[in-house]
């Protein structure tokens, strides 16, 4: 096992909420540059897994290592984000009162502590990078638009754009196509593949068509641990997966 080579390494992670085991000895390895799809029925622990990786929820037991060395269980959300892990929520979460431009500016890799942000001026390079990202996430011309006024799909993309601006090494994406039209879904799959060229991605998704379109390794979560892993064809053929998830 080349643990040191893994980008993200989860070993025997357990999280309990009032006696309910949301995660039960979950182990998972993500390689650098990999895109992984996580599927599983409701309550399988997908979102809790994301919460543990990003520091929102503390694990009762187990290790979570980033780049082989950094123990994520000891850090808070902001520190983990600074390490290079970005997260997109299930419901699009952007800053509703800020313009598209400001949303991206806040996400842009750069100073995060109090005094530098108090004094930081806007640099030309930043402006340039924000224009590029707006191009990528198809929000060109909307720089001054207030984020709260965007459509649902546009918000999803703005949030992905913010993640791009953050320039993380690993991106966690929770149900990116929920509520999107077919065309938007296809475009999103395209976008994620594009993003995956430069960084690792973990996608949690219910939409099987979308997962098929992504065409990446799939982990099936069930009752807080990994039930099966492999290509979508491989896991779809697994009788246990059929039993708990796909079959009925």
């Amino acid at each position: 096992m080349s643990l040191t080579g893994a980008l993200l390494y989860l070993n025997d992670v357990t999280v309990t909420f009032d006696g309910f085991r949301a995660l039960n000895g979950l182990s998972l390895v993500i390689e650098p540059g990999e895109m992984r799809a996580i599927i599983g029925p409701n309550g399988a622990g997908k979102t809790t897994m994301m919460d543990v990786i990003t520091g929102k929820t503390r694990a009762d037991r187990g290790e979570v290592l980033f780049e082989g060395a950094r123990d994520l269980t000891r850090l808070d959300e902001a520190e983990i984000a600074e390490l290079g892990i970005g997260r997109k929520f299930q419901r699009p979460t952007v800053f509703d009162h800020h313009s598209v431009f400001d949303n991206l500016l806040l996400a842009l890799k750069g100073p995060r502590s109090v005094w530098p942000t108090l004094l930081a001026p806007l640099r030309g390079a930043e402006r340039q990078r924000i224009r590029e990202i707006m191009e990528i996430v198809r929000l060109r011309g909307l720089a001054a638009e207030i984020a709260g006024n965007l459509s649902h799909g546009q918000k999803q993309w703005l949030e992905i754009g913010m993640l791009l601006a953050q320039d993380p090494k690993l991106m966690l994406v929770d149900e990116p196509v929920a509520g999107m039209t077919d065309a938007e879904t296809a475009a999103t799959a395209e976008l994620l593949r594009e993003i995956n060229r430069t960084r690792s991605v973990i996608v949690v998704e219910h939409d099987m068509a979308f997962v098929r379109e992504l065409d990446v390794k799939v982990s099936v979560l069930h009752e807080g641990s990994v039930l099966a892993e492999g290509s979508l064809e491989h896991v779809s053929a697994d009788p246990r997966v059929i039993e708990v998830y796909l079959g009925r």
Partner: peptide, 23 residues
């Protein structure tokens, strides 16, 4: 200032600001 934008940002979506790396 940019700090002011961060304040409004965390007012509106504290979780998002955290996951962007703001303490």
């Amino acid at each position: 200032s940019r700090l002011g934008k961060v304040l409004v940002a965390l007012r509106d979506a504290e979780g998002r600001a955290r996951f962007l790396g703001y303490p």
